[in-house]
């Protein structure tokens, strides 16, 4: 499989120590599915890092989280947690991982406290330690006052807050959250953001998926943009923001480009970055008008025409949208 990520800025990642999460060429194809849900994912979350995976619905975020949580076997590739292979050291790894699933995974007819106690016991906690963790988690979620109400009477925000702290009950060193703030009231979202920052400050490694641009920008140190099971671009928030200041050219091609097109374009003088995604090409350059002719020539050399072409400044949001929507059109 060729490199599915046409452009990556990983230099910031290589800062010492064993990575908390390391994915190597991870692929997953569901039985009977035409396209793989994960297609050669390479990704590193360093220890103590705060990593965001940004992608629209169906990008493969939940699939990725499920592989990390040991719920799904990958079709190929490897998952290393704290440098240990997930398949071979499942039991040890499960103890350091805290999972917060996308849908609140709670028992509706039990109370918040009963839910926390039950999952705490399932994590192996007992006695006073269990009780103090339950109290702590209720406080973190700010639901101490509602601790003895059945969860079915909770609002969406309360359910998500409880869902979050169930993932924290055993004090995991690595926290994996799948869209923890979808469809939630502003207060609950702010609270969850606040708690995640505190956990990050306490040295917990965090991997969070989201489809909210600004959530990723506000919280994360590093971001990967994911679409159709591939990572389109990843880098530090600084790198991606720097990209925003550049001018861009967007082109719509008349046919499917060969895989090597991105690398070819990358070599053009004066061009900074190039993304190819389906029939959509986006390049950034300081003087876009100067490279436009060369750009079109390179495209023609591959036997392709240009359907449409446009100039403009890009925001991270635009990068995200143009990369993901062009694929969705197909």
């Amino acid at each position: 499989m060729n490199n599915p990520c046409p452009f990556s800025m990983q230099h910031a990642v290589k800062t010492g120590g064993v990575a908390a999460i390391e994915l190597r060429q991870l692929s997953k194809r569901y039985k009977g599915a035409r396209a793989p849900a994960l297609n050669g994912i390479d990704l590193t979350v360093r220890e103590g890092g705060f990593f965001g995976i940004l992608g629209p619905n169906g990008a493969g975020k939940t699939t990725l989280m499920s592989v990390l949580g040991g719920l799904l076997k990958p079709s190929s590739g490897s998952v290393l947690i704290n440098g240990q292979d997930l398949q071979r050291h499942r039991a040890a790894i499960k103890r350091v991982l805290g999972m917060v699933p996308q849908e609140p995974a709670i028992y509706p007819t039990l109370t918040a406290r009963e839910n926390l106690e039950y999952f705490g016991r399932m994590q192996g906690l007992t006695g006073k330690h269990l009780q103090s963790r339950v109290e702590a988690c209720l406080e973190i979620a700010e639901i101490s006052g509602e601790a003895d109400q059945r969860v079915e009477h909770f609002s969406g925000g309360f359910k998500r807050r409880l869902n979050l702290v169930i993932g924290l009950i055993h004090e995991p060193r690595i926290l994996i959250l799948d869209e923890p703030t979808v469809a939630i009231d502003p207060h609950s979202r702010a609270l969850i953001h606040q708690r995640l920052r505190e956990l990050h400050a306490a040295g917990i490694s965090i991997l969070i998926s989201t489809h909210y641009m600004e959530e990723a920008e506000q919280l994360c140190q590093e971001i990967a943009i994911m679409h159709h099971g591939r990572i389109l671009v990843q880098g530090t928030v600084g790198d991606l923001l720097a990209m925003q200041r550049n001018e861009t050219i967007q082109m719509q091609l008349t046919g499917d480009p060969p895989a090597a097109l991105a690398q070819k374009l990358q070599k053009l003088p004066g061009l900074q970055n190039a993304f190819v995604s389906g029939r959509c090409v986006m390049v950034t350059a300081e003087r876009p008008d100067e490279i436009a002719v060369q750009l079109m020539q390179t495209v023609h050399e591959h036997g392709l025409g240009v359907h449409s072409m446009g100039f403009g400044a890009s925001s991270l949001e635009q990068v995200f949208l143009s990369l993901t929507e062009s694929k969705a059109e197909k």
Partner: peptide, 16 residues
């Protein structure tokens, strides 16, 4: 229901 509510999956992410 436990599977649909996700609690069963949650248990699978633990050492149970």
């Amino acid at each position: 229901k436990e599977r649909e509510q996700g609690s069963l999956f949650r248990l699978q992410t633990m050492t149970v």
